[in-house]
Design a protein around this nucleic acid. Structure first.
Lengths: 181, 207
DNA sequence: AACTTACTTTATAAAGC
DNA sequence: GCTTTAAAAAGTAAGTT
């Protein structure tokens, strides 16, 4: 009964190198890196392959966004860290990477009458004046879904692919239970 | 005990002062929006409830007043857009929307999304359109809602397109530009909506 | 009227104002 | 709360051609 195909669109991951960084010192190792401390405290480094963006902080912690798979996210982080290590040999080779958020899209197959969904489905917010999607908050997998009239859906807030998948499936089941789909 | 008493007086004085300020803000915003006294009173009730439930903490009085007014307009079926509320108050659209969500959640105010129908009377009168055109526009909107043609679309755009179509059908034609300006949407939006409405409902070639 | 670019919403970490 | 990043959904907006 659960044949919902989801597509991962974006993954946010964080890592802690366990050693502080001298940003001006390591920045030269990252071609095209941006750094405006008054505007934002971290270095902004965009990689073309995997296509991602990394935010690197003086505390030695970093954030990687834009990857479409967990493997790509980890790969991107290692590429950036390895480059910085050329200018700071103290940077460890081993460190933890944590997946913080997974954004996925899916298609429920049938169109939705958002006005009806807003009336019958619990925990929703629907303000078409502001945004065309209906916001649905799930507790079980703690994720948030955006439901559109076209039947397409966006699931965000998941920490694992399974939760994103489960979130979409539960949403579809709930809509079916309420005869909204 | 005397200090405690004085403190109470000072606090209640501040409370009254804040309420007076809030009500003057409400009067100012309401008159700029041309709202009837009944709506202003409905908004003051929302505001007083917010104060009683200590919902002002960490928020500006102006913001809570603006959000209360936005909610009251919707509840009284004479909606104003977040942009219109933001224009007359000195609160940003983002802040009004954020405070509105907070108030509706904390005060358990459940309001359905604004219906395009509620914008018809105001837009029509500003365009000097007859009651017949209004009725026709409302008829169009109701059919559109039944067919799910309003899901995700802005209420003002749907109301504007319906009024435009109705004005043409009943020989009181208004230009898309005029309707767009009154409704606060672009001509492109009216065009997109009316194409969708005329195609998926009845009326085709008539325009 | 078509295109292109861009903003609205959701979540999320990071350091600091 | 904001700043910065990424990405999708669909509607709306603005600037060009």
């Amino acid at each position: 009964m659960t044949t919902v195909e989801i597509k991962v669109e974006n993954i946010v991951a964080s890592a802690a190198l366990g050693k502080s960084l001298d940003l001006p010192q390591v920045a030269p190792a990252l071609e095209g890196v941006e750094y405006n401390s008054e505007q934002f405290p971290g270095l902004v480094y965009k990689l073309k392959e995997p296509k991602t963006a990394a935010l690197i902080f003086g505390s030695g912690k970093l954030v990687c966004t834009g990857a479409k798979s967990i493997e790509d996210s980890k790969k991107a982080i290692h590429i950036a860290v390895d480059k910085m290590r050329a200018l700071d040999t103290e940077i460890p080779h081993e460190f933890e990477i944590k997946i913080q958020n997974i954004v996925a899209s899916a298609n429920l197959g049938k169109t939705l009458n958002l006005e009806s969904v807003a009336l019958d489905l619990e925990n929703t917010e629907y303000e078409p004046e502001q945004f065309p999607g209906l916001v649905y908050r799930l507790d079980d997998p703690k994720v948030v879904l955006l439901l559109f009239g076209s039947g397409k859906v966006v699931c965000t807030g998941a920490k694992s692919f399974e939760d994103a998948q489960l979130g979409v499936e539960k949403t579809k089941e709930r809509l079916a239970e309420l005869d909204l789909i | 005990r005397l200090r405690k008493w004085q403190r109470k007086i000072r606090i209640s004085g501040a409370t009254e002062r804040n309420l007076a300020f809030a009500l003057s803000e409400l009067d100012r915003d309401s008159s700029r929006l041309g709202l009837p006294r009944s709506v202003r009173e409905a908004a003051s009730v929302v505001y007083r409830n917010a104060v009683e439930n200590k919902l002002i903490r960490g928020r500006s009085i102006e913001g809570v007043v603006a959000a209360s007014l936005y909610a009251a307009c919707r509840r009284c079926n004479v909606p104003r857009t977040l942009d219109e509320i933001a224009e007359v108050s000195r609160v940003s659209k983002k802040e009004v929307g954020r405070t509105y969500r907070f108030l509706t959640r904390e005060l358990n105010i459940k309001l359905p999304p604004t219906s395009p129908v509620d914008y018809v009377p105001r837009f029509a009168s500003e365009l000097n359109l007859s009651g017949e055109v209004q009725s026709k526009a409302i008829e169009i909107i109701e059919k559109a809602m039944e067919k799910g043609l309003t899901s995700g679309r802005g209420p003002t755009g749907v109301a504007a397109a319906a009024l435009y179509i109705a004005s043409v059908l009943l020989g009181e034609r208004k230009t898309q530009r005029d309707v767009a300006d009154i409704a606060g949407v672009t001509e492109v939006t009216i065009r997109n909506r009316y194409k969708e409405l005329t195609e998926q409902l009845d009326m085709g070639v008539t325009l």
